[in-house]
């Protein structure tokens, strides 16, 4: 390259290195309804915590309590597919239903929903012992269709999370077993 062209290239480099800056914008839109801030009015939970029992189908491989998990199962499907069921409990409401559902949604690459959208999508079920919120979501994980069937409920001062996650078709096929498992959850008898 001729030496006399060098300064021109330098100017070009400096100009374009600074290109593509974002800008603050302002606009007017038709009025939108505001939503309630999640977690502001979290319900009080009763005193005391405890352990739960459950009945799992025979083909679920019971891995027992490990680490943070109060219960853990591996479920094998066809073609070597495996789904994972975890039972976890945390003190308090752990950010509320919306934050936890959105955390799960993030795990399968789905965008977060508003609390109103989540409230509308949750299936509320009363079992013999608990009021349980059930959610189902299908997205992708590592490029594979992945589904989460989840159940959230309070017991004592803790929030309990039962999550079945795995290949979408396997989790869908196990949905009835998952619901039976959730329905079987009961306080442990001393």
């Amino acid at each position: 390259m001729p030496a006399r062209l060098a300064p021109l290239f330098l100017v070009f480099a400096i100009i374009f290195a600074g290109c593509g800056r974002d800008e603050v914008t302002s606009y007017r839109v038709p009025k939108e309804t505001s939503l309630a801030v999640p977690g502001l009015n979290a319900p009080a939970t009763p005193e005391g915590g405890g352990m739960l029992t459950w009945n799992a189908p025979d083909h679920w491989n019971d891995l027992g309590a490990t680490g943070m998990r109060r219960g853990s199962f591996a479920i094998e499907g066809e073609n070597g597919q495996t789904a994972d069921l975890s039972v976890i409990a945390f003190p308090g409401n752990v950010g509320g239903l919306a934050a936890n559902v959105n955390r799960w949604r993030g795990q399968v690459g789905l965008p977060a929903l508003t609390s109103a959208e989540i409230d509308a999508s949750v299936e509320h079920t009363d079992t013999a012992h608990f009021h349980i919120d059930i959610v189902t979501m299908t997205g992708q994980s590592n490029g594979e269709p992945t589904r989460i069937d989840g159940a959230i409920f309070s017991f004592g001062t803790e929030s309990w999370f039962i999550k079945l996650m795995g290949p979408a078709d396997l989790v869908a096929a196990e949905n009835a077993n998952f619901r039976a498992f959730v329905a079987s959850v009961a306080p442990a008898q001393d």
């Binding site: 914008t25 302002s26 606009y27 839109v29």
Partner: peptide, 28 residues
Amino acid sequence: NKSDPDHDDVVAIPESFIADQQPVQHGK
């Protein structure tokens, strides 16, 4: 700005301004 009964006036600041911790002054 939610003051107008029919419309909302929105000023949107891209995340890059927040990341650069760049103060923003806007006419609106």
